[in-house]
Design a protein around this nucleic acid. Sequence first.
RNA 1: GGGCAUGUAGCUCAGCUGGAUAGAGCGUCAGAUUCCGGUUCUGAAAGCCGAGGGUUCGAGUCCUUCCAUGCCCGCCA
Length: 587
Amino acid sequence: MLKLRGILNQRLLEAMAKALPLPQAVDPLLRPATKPEFGDFQANGAMGLAKVLDSPPRQIAQAVVDHLQVDDLCCPPQVAGPGFINLTIRPEVLAAEVQGRLKQPRLGVPMAEPRQRVVVDFSSPNIAKEMHVGHLRSTIIGDCIARVLSFRGHQVLRLNHLGDWGTQFGMLIAHLKNVAPQTLAGQENLDLGDLVEFYRQAKGCFDEDEVFQERSRREVVQLQAGAPESLRAWGLLCQRSRQAFQAIYDRLDVQLLERGESFYNGALPGVVEALEQAQLLVTDDGARCVFLQGITGKDGRPLPLIVQKRDGGYNYATTDLAAIRQRLTSPEAGGEGAERVIYVTDAGQSDHFAAVFQVAQRAGWVPPGCRLQHVPFGLVQGADGKKLKTRSGATVRLRDLLDEAVERARHDLVERLAQEQRQVTGEFIESVATAVGMAAVKYADLSQNRTTNYQFSFDRMLSLQGNTAPYLLYVYVRIQGIARKGGPLETPGPAAIYLNDPQELHLARQLLHFDEVILELEKDLLPNRLCTYLFGLSQSFNRFYDQLPVLKAPTQLRSTRIALCRLTAETLGLGLDLLGIKTIDRM
RNA sequence: GGGCAUGUAGCUCAGCUGGAUAGAGCGUCAGAUUCCGGUUCUGAAAGCCGAGGGUUCGAGUCCUUCCAUGCCCGCCA
């Protein structure tokens, strides 16, 4: 409907110019109708002009309608309520739009103009730690955003800002030298078993043993100085973690380019120097920091952003600033040349990013027209409304969570197969359970407004009813069933589509909104809007399918309905794909 | 103490740049079925949109003051 909306907006502008004594053009405030009975669009502009023109809003609206020429597209416009202008697209125009969509794989979504270079920074787990639900949200949401921006034609770089550097490596290396010295000499392959358990042990030593603490600090210094043995130990730890992470990314079907904190190590001194030159740097209590504007602490004084600690070490703010420079620097100068950088992290880091962005701005590292954007999300909570934990109080491991989703999906599937007495292969059960389980986890996350906390529930996400992945997947499967039974849902010839029945019209209208939804998603980065849309589309389809025969319809109606089925499947397929969810043909 | 976010039906949540009588799912209750996969569809009950004040033709949405909850707050990331 993007195209039609643009045309109608133009016609309204023209009509207003003719009808009203206005010095300059005024926005007609064209919006999608709030209710089906109001038609497709409503123009709200008349009401705001009542005061300016000193006449009743309905009269203004009527004057605009009198000059409005839209008979080629719309039924006669109606003035309603306090002064709305309601516009209803004619069925044959809708039919032509549907026809047009059938021929294009982009389903009406235009390529972005201009195309941008975009960095999406997401997922970002820490080496030697287990991925948990916080990483899940970042990974799923970040992946969706990257997919949508790529689809729009932007050049997207998906970066995994891995926590692969920093003080925690001191204790890890120290512990490694204690328990497996031979691996460091290259004599044995590293087998640390559960890396998380290893981390816990190291942390235990660090907390209890002062001698160990001191050794850990020395290890950090050695590592940062590039001592070969330390680097080797570090490399071994990273490699182990990397394998574990990759297994998760493979299951989730998420592509990421690893670019951990260590990547920016060499650039850290340069960050401090540049800030010094920009005269932003202040030494306070031995630490080198930039005092922030408009952000004050407990005592009302400006808060500092520390970029070099008293002991000379750098911290995450320094790394983030180095990353910003790298990402915003032009490709000719060895950078990424990004015009938009998106950070998908939990909302708890909002202050941190506000501070870092401010400093980057003041240092002059953000070229005009470039945008740094923190895309925050809320906590994952359990049924009790508190941060999600296992019964024993530990963090929930991501792989356990995914396992359980698939296991529950398999259980439901097997039960249903038995009820329906269907015979299928083990392979089928496996692939459906995996697809449904992953889809459920992703969709549950994405269908929630990301800014709020999100209550995790296997029962809800795997439910076959309601706004869930299984409900949407089922609609897709149903349509594939029609195709299996009735032959391929071939494109009807020209002028073969006639929209008549209310259910047909309603479904067609819904289908045509897809382009607007995607553009909105690109702007607001709120995947739940797409989910809401796909759910509504699925409901419309089920209503349509419930009330109207497709394959058994008379010939002249059949091709229209098959076309609607096909476009529904394509829209669902593309929509789910942009969410990072795979469709299946049977379930 | 300061900052940010959230508060909408019994529960989980939508509500985009302010628009017409505040929406959906689950749950509850009552129905439908010539069924192309009923994992469906129809209907009903259910609300002081946290509270007060303001802005205007019009406020769940914007401003302001409270209240409640969550997260964050100088050398961890």
